[in-house]
Amino acid sequence: MKKMMVMLLSVIMITSIFMVGCTSKESSGGGEGSSDAGYSGKTYKWVAQSPWPSGTTLHWMAEEIARDITAATGGRLEVEMHPAGSIVAAFDILDAVDTGTLDAIHSWEGYWVGQIQAAGFFASMPLGMNEQQYMTWVLQDEGTELWKETFADYNVEVLPAGAYTPEVFYHSTVPIQNLDDLKDLRVRGSAFWGEIQSRLGANVINVPGGEVYQALERGMVDAAEFATPTDNWGLGFHEVAEYLVVPGAHQPTSTFSFMVNQQRWDELPDDLKEIVMLVTENMWGKAWSYAAYQDMQTMEKYRELEEQGKLTIIEFDEGDQVRMSEVTNEYYAELAEKDEQFRKVWESQNKFLEKYNYWRDFMSPSY
């Protein structure tokens, strides 16, 4: 009898402990950093858009962010990414996420320099930083802080979201080996690079990206820049321009962001915010390595065309690249005098580069 009582008491104690544990878990929620969605079953859905056409490396980046967030949150936050023009026009996405028409966007800030000149520093600057420099400045120095500050007038949470590979300098119907060859040529250009090309003696024509092929084919322009080797290959520029000019000094890298409407961001529990931030930070390595791998293979295709006599690859004169840098910095200095935020960001990058380049030059081998 005594033995049976002991066994009964043991069962009661175990059952009680189990019930207390379950009750404790189910009542968890609230408090600093907790996730009520994890226990209440609450889910969120964001409708997002990029400014990129489907099938491009650029839209792949946007789609990967959406897929990774959805997967990493176990579907608690679903991001539905749409290509350019699906919901709003490509150049209207910033206003759309600001007003809440879109919950989030994949963005290249070069599109917004008309509203905010300093935005160009968070996209790509001609003769500017490369991807490693940008990544370090953004993730470790004050780049993220200045990025958010530059867009403070918009109702958005700005999340830096990776870098892209260098662009092709020109697809051209005539050889361009130096600055003398560039003078008086009709070239595609816009924003900062358009002005710089004008200062270098070129005749700049603003051609939309979707019309570059036709502009080269019909002789509207002699040379055009657009994107990376891979994306340019897909658009067939090599079919109508027999010269490929490198390196992409005008755009040594491009950086991107994932912007979220502030109200949509604020309603997320802390753990989901942390996952979104980790996904976007991860894109600094994921996006660049993916694009680089694609470009490696594409350059092999260009090399095969050159071996077949169908294309000529030209390396632009190194000394004239330095001269372009000098002209570019003169132009930036003029802009800095007129725009306080532009000056602040430009000075931050220059201060960072002075230390970064000192370290890199000593520590990078010459072989």
Results as ranks from 00 to 15, higher is better:
Lys2Pro: 12
Met7Ala: 15
Val11Leu: 11
Phe18Thr: 09
Met19Asn: 10
Val20Arg: 08
Lys25Ser: 15
Glu26Tyr: 11
Ser27Val: 15
Ser35Lys: 02
Ser40Arg: 06
Lys42Thr: 05
Pro51Asp: 05
Leu58Lys: 11
Ile69Met: 07
Gly85Leu: 02
Ile87Pro: 01
Phe91His: 09
Phe91Val: 04
Thr99Asn: 09
Gly100His: 04
His106Gln: 12
Val113Lys: 01
Val113Glu: 04
Gly114Trp: 10
Ala118Arg: 05
Ala119Tyr: 02
Ala123Thr: 01
Ser124Ala: 13
Met125Gly: 03
Met125Asn: 11
Tyr134Phe: 12
Val138Asp: 06
Thr144His: 13
Trp147Val: 06
Lys148Ile: 03
Thr150Ala: 08
Phe151Val: 04
Asp153Ile: 05
Gly162Leu: 01
Ser172His: 00
Arg188Trp: 06
Gly189Ile: 12
Ser190Asp: 03
Ser198Leu: 09
Arg199Glu: 06
Asn203Trp: 02
Arg218Leu: 13
Glu225Ala: 15
Thr228Lys: 13
Thr228Phe: 04
Asp231Glu: 07
Val240Gly: 04
Tyr243Leu: 05
Gln251Asp: 13
Gln251Trp: 10
Asn282Met: 10
Ala287Gln: 05
Ala287Leu: 10
Ser289Cys: 11
Gln294Met: 12
Val322Arg: 13
Ser325Ala: 08
Gln341Ile: 08
Gln341Asn: 14
Arg343Gln: 01
Asp361Asn: 15
Pro365Leu: 04
